[in-house]
């Protein structure tokens, strides 16, 4: 299990390749990547604040919960904080499992929980100023299916 919280960009291709390399114990690797999306066409930057100390602990607890629910070979979570431009990668999740159903389900579970149970807060900067992104009821409802 590898959990990284960092300001620096990451190389998604290199990370995914390294995660999948040299494993004969798993038949499936699923990856997800989150990208800074510009809904308004006016996004200048996304700032992500986090809770140093709690963040790694909370993500590790979520990953351990996933490892307890599904037969996983490994889990990788990288989540950035700080300032990002539209189109930049914010985070990635990778899961390895003997069978793909477990790898897909665990990746979805990780994403649902990272969205509303890991201490990150997004702020969008546009020409009209800066505004905190509000959590949605759909984000919270997504936890209900697990």
């Amino acid at each position: 299990m590898d959990v990284r919280v960092q300001a620096a960009p990451f190389d998604f291709g290199a990370e995914a390749a390294a995660f999948a390399a040299g494993r004969a114990d798993v038949g499936a690797v699923v990856t997800f990547t989150g990208i800074v999306r510009d809904d308004s066409g006016d996004l200048r930057a996304m700032h992500i604040e986090h809770y140093p100390g709690m963040t790694e602990r909370a993500i590790t607890a979520i990953a351990e919960e996933a490892a307890g629910r599904w037969a996983l070979g490994d889990v990788l979570v990288i989540h950035r904080f700080g300032a990002m431009a539209p189109g930049e990668m914010i985070m990635m999740v990778a899961t390895a499992a003997p069978h793909r159903a477990d790898a897909f389900a665990a990746a979805e579970f990780l994403m649902d929980y990272l969205k509303s149970r890991a201490p990150f807060w997004k702020k969008e900067v546009t020409s009209r100023g800066a505004a905190w992104v509000a959590a949605t009821e759909a984000d919270e409802a997504a936890l209900g299916r697990w």
Binding site: G34, Y51, M54, H79, I90, M91, M111, L114, K115, S116, R117, A118, P119, F120, W121, K122, W132, V133, A134, A135, D139, E140
Partner: peptide, 10 residues
């Protein structure tokens, strides 16, 4: 003790 709005990770 920490206080914050609902989280918006991912």
């Amino acid at each position: 003790v920490a206080f914050f709005p609902p989280m918006t990770g991912g």
